[in-house]
Write a protein that binds this DNA or RNA. Structure first.
Lengths: 355, 355
DNA sequence: ATTAAAATCGGGTACGTACCCGCAATATAC
DNA sequence: GTATATTGCGGGTACGTACCCGATTTTAAT
């Protein structure tokens, strides 16, 4: 079989420009040592031939290896949400490893701001070429990314964003629209009467996310003139007992709650509560494809789960770094993930497919 | 920066086995000319070092180029559904082109069985190494794929499947479950009364798909003891006038239709009809992320669209061929796509993201 | 034992790019 | 003018694997 005859490489460029391959290489990589005249001549030929470097050969010959750092929460017993992004990181890792790219993953504790800081400092010491991070702690993330900017290390946010921080990209959900959709799903077959309960279960972190989601949620109701009374429950402890105690209080005060929206993945706690109290007829919508949540989806306690492709977020973030650092390509700065709707009927197909 | 010191290549294997690189190469590629003894020795070292060939170097050195054929319907004025798979093919194409893989795309006319046969024959004449096809015409597809099997050309089905045909893989929806979900969405907030209309608009092709979807649809209603009367409308012409004429008849006979399920992407015709007749309060669910359908989703005539990631189907199918032919890897034989639910609220994020 | 054939193997080049080393030409200093 | 930087450029090797071309050894045939 023959090679593609329409492909021209540096050799052909050098031949046409009457220079050596080395000179062409210098022009391509913007290195010094070429006169303006020949540089111009070579650039014209490059443009004329629409030269596309052969990445295989390029990466094979290059000895410049690239190190990427990943900074995400550790997978905890409380929730295995972060196992999905970790999987995405690993998928990208195996894919780009032959290109001379190494990955080091740093985990922090979602209940401990200091662990974030510690790990972030380790990254800075290490001297990496690019960073993928989940900015779970706003202040610490800002400090860290400012330092990255100073050191000219590109970084990508996943899961939630800090705008104005000059990240290379944000890859994650549009939280406002996600809450907006949540309201639609929750009220889609609801009657005119009855209250709505919005539950936020978290240890005071990720508040910013929560606010955007609730804003979108309320916005939907307002735009559609749905004047349900909205009760709020802020639960700062994530263990089941605290959740149950809190909800019991809410229910004694409000008997006619017809629908519950949980703003994050801890919806399974609420589902367990409803099952224990035999209140399964209440509509329940929450977030994320976790084992526990799927169970309650299958028993019918949870009506809908909303999900933002956590695996793909991380995978794409890695590829964004790869394309920037290795290929020098421009990337989309804001990449909103699809807002997926998971029900009992389609949940079995919402997994990571192997090739 | 230094190279990964944990990586060992053929050179190291050759050194340890006291043979030349060429001999190691012969063992790796199962070529003849190596005594059993040295072959065994080399294989042991390969296993011991967990040797992973460097694909970059491998594909760079290899002159064996691989040709993939794609056989899908032409994008027509009637519907641009197939532009999504085409896009997926092209995305995969640019990604694997540097690996020495060429793609030739053949289009057939969904209204003309013969065009399928003609294009299929062109592929066989051409002598390609792998085929991606949509088996829109069952009989012709069987004939073609049998011939592929005889010639030992692997092939992958997308969009719909022909089981028992020994394809390398099927990548597409689980149609039964898709119809099942359709019934859930259609009846989710429906009252106890009123009839359901199931509409199939197509020129008698793809019947097999339709049947599976309808089966799933009815199955949901049955399992949930929803005893609505179901009307059926089979419309064999795809132009709007034919659809409108047909639906008018159905509506004169049945005044109390409360919900309509369209089994394919032509749901926009039904939506137009409902808008013209001022019957927008009827629930409407159908298939596929087409411009026309999204318009009606946004006006509220269509309530839900179901979608099976057509772009990714084609992309994955290409990668399956790549992994099989280039990497010699085993692949998953049946890859069901997620069954995505598109509403007015999340539709804007359901597009193909650029890196 | 001699010769032919077959089996087994090594040397070496190529793939397209990166990049080191060093030579020539030109510019600058005195 | 000569001596010294500086600039511009080419030769050549390396990356890890594929594969051609032959050389050597072993086996089979006579």
């Amino acid at each position: 079989m023959e090679k593609d005859p329409t492909y021209f490489g540096v050799k052909e460029i050098a031949r046409r420009a009457n220079v050596s391959i080395a000179t062409v290489d210098r022009v391509i990589h913007n290195r010094t040592g070429v006169s303006e005249k020949t540089k111009k001549r070579i650039n014209e030929i490059i443009k004329e031939l629409d030269y596309q470097p052969n990445i295989l050969a390029s990466r094979l010959a290059s000895k410049n290896i690239i190190i990427l750092a990943v900074l995400i929460p550790r997978v905890s017993e409380e929730t295995d949400f972060w196992s999905a992004p970790l999987h995405g990181v690993q998928r990208a890792e195996t894919e780009i490893k032959p290109y001379g790219i190494q990955t080091i993953t740093f985990f922090f504790d979602l209940n401990d701001e200091n662990s974030f800081e510690t790990q972030a400092n380790l990254i800075l010491e290490k001297g990496v070429n690019g960073v993928l991070l989940s900015p779970s702690f706003i202040a610490q993330s800002i400090r860290f990314t400012e330092e990255c900017r100073r050191l000219k290390i590109p970084f990508v946010f996943i899961d939630s964003n800090i705008p104005q921080q000059h990240s290379l990209a944000y890859i994650g959900p549009h939280l406002f629209k996600s809450g907006y959709l949540g309201a639609k799903l929750l009220t889609y077959r609801k009657g005119e009467e009855g209250k709505i309960l919005v539950v936020n279960i978290s240890k005071e972190i990720e508040n910013y996310n929560y606010l955007q989601i609730e804003e979108g949620f309320r916005s939907y109701l307002k735009e559609n003139h749905l004047n349900f009374e909205i009760i709020r429950a802020d639960i700062n402890e994530t263990d089941y007992l605290s959740v149950a105690r809190n909800l019991t209080q809410v229910f004694t005060k409000n008997e006619d709650i017809e629908a519950i929206f949980v703003t994050n993945s801890r919806v399974f706690s609420v589902a367990t509560f409803l099952e224990n109290k035999h209140k399964k007829e209440i509509a329940l919508v929450g977030y994320d494809f976790l084992k526990e949540n799927i169970q309650h989806l299958n028993t019918g306690t949870i009506d809908f789960l909303i999900c933002h492709k956590p695996e793909e977020q991380a995978y794409r973030a890695m590829m964004v770094l790869y394309h920037t650092l290795v290929r020098g390509q421009q990337v989309e700065k804001t990449q909103y993930m699809p807002i997926d709707i998971i029900t009992r009927e389609n949940q079995e197909f919402y997994q990571i497919l192997p090739i």
